[in-house]
Simulated scan of single mutants.
Amino acid sequence: MVKNIFLLLLLVISGSCLQAQRLNPAGYAQLQQQQDSLQYLSQQTFGGKDEDTRQKACDRLIPALVHALKTPYSFYFPFDSLKTVSTQYPKDSTFRIFTWALEKDNGFYRHYGAIQMNTKDGQLKLFPLFDNSDYAANVDTVGDNKAWFGCLYYNISQQHFFNQEYYTLFGWDANNLRSQKKIMEMLRFKNGRPIFGGPFFSFAEDSVPKRTQNRFIIEYKKDASATLNYNAEMDMVVYDHLISQTDEPGKKYTYVPDMDYEGFKWKAGKWVHVNKVFNDALPQGKVPVQQPLDQRKKNIMHPQTEEDMEAEKKAKQEQQKAARKKG
């Protein structure tokens, strides 16, 4: 009897603690009101009539967002009405990242953002992100939130290795009038602080190995569309192979996809480059043919890797051997 009462008390206390670690109705209502103001400012930052209007809206958006986030347990408020502000969460929900972009009149973009940690006591722990990409001659860097390679994040993939969590960030940079970029980089936390970049992109298994990179970036033509993202079904990163449309490899703004695909596999704490992912793509570096490919032969939902193709080939050979023996 005493044991049952003790267990019941434990359940009540645990339930109370869980309830306390959530946004209360008053806080939720307050954040809803603040979100209306944030929505207006974010829209002006994105689509204001000129750079001055956009910059002023952005300058007001930053403190307004920080003020809203100071509400206890604000981490549990989604801010889903802020359509021009990207909010991304990792699988373990230990933090979230806000990012947004401001277009300059010259066609270049500056990015803003912040990492909000999911704290146990609901108090705000925030790391503002300072876009350093326009001032860094070397993009293959490792830095903290004060030396951030600015972009708009659209996905986070979480990896685990040797009792540490690693977060792969996928971002888009509208860049300038001629080209755009997609960025893949690692985020980890050291002594509770964010570290962006690191030697996690290996090309050691390529036929001609290259040095390990701290960050992976593809740049391509402004009006082209290129993929760089984590494919959960394949458990790997897949991206478009790019070639120069004008046979000028030194000019990234001429690059377009050639219907071939490359990727990265997570192995022993690194993203290891895979030179060819799909079996039905064009040979690397070849310009797409004028006649469209037979789409009936393409199965994007269940693409094959080179390993899958080799296994399928061996299975067919075994079947042929068995058939010959029977004959």
Rank of each mutant, 00 (worst) to 15 (best):
Q164M: 02
N24I: 06
G263E: 07
S202R: 04
L23T: 08
V142Y: 03
W172A: 12
I97N: 01
F200V: 00
N163Y: 06
R22L: 13
V274L: 14
I300D: 11
P288E: 12
L187D: 03
F46A: 15
S133R: 13
P303L: 12
E219W: 04
G143C: 02
F216N: 09
F95A: 07
P90Q: 14
P292T: 15
Q319V: 14
R296G: 00
F130Q: 12
L38R: 06
A204T: 11
Q123D: 05
A204W: 08
V272T: 10
Q55D: 05
R188W: 00
Q317V: 13
Q30C: 13
V274Q: 15
G192V: 00
S86F: 08
K314R: 11
Q284F: 10
L242S: 05
N275Y: 13
Y76Q: 10
K182L: 08
S93C: 09
D223R: 11
V85N: 02
R178Y: 06
Q34R: 15
P194H: 09
R324V: 03
H302G: 01
Q44H: 07
E219L: 01
T246D: 12
F264A: 12
H160D: 11
P63C: 09
Y109S: 01
G47R: 10
R188T: 02
T168F: 14
P257D: 11
M301Q: 13
K182V: 04
K314A: 07
K298R: 15
Y253G: 02
Y76D: 09
K190W: 04
S14H: 11
T212Y: 05
Y230T: 08
L61N: 04
L23M: 08
Q123T: 09
S244G: 01
L152M: 11
S179V: 05
K91M: 08
V287A: 08
I62E: 12
N163E: 12
Q34L: 12
M309R: 13
K286S: 13
N4A: 14
Y261H: 14
Q284A: 08
K70Y: 00
F200A: 03
R193Y: 03
F95K: 11
Q164Y: 02
V142S: 02
Q88V: 10
A137E: 12
Y73F: 14
F278T: 07
Y230F: 09
A26F: 15
F149T: 05
G27K: 10
T94H: 15
K286G: 04
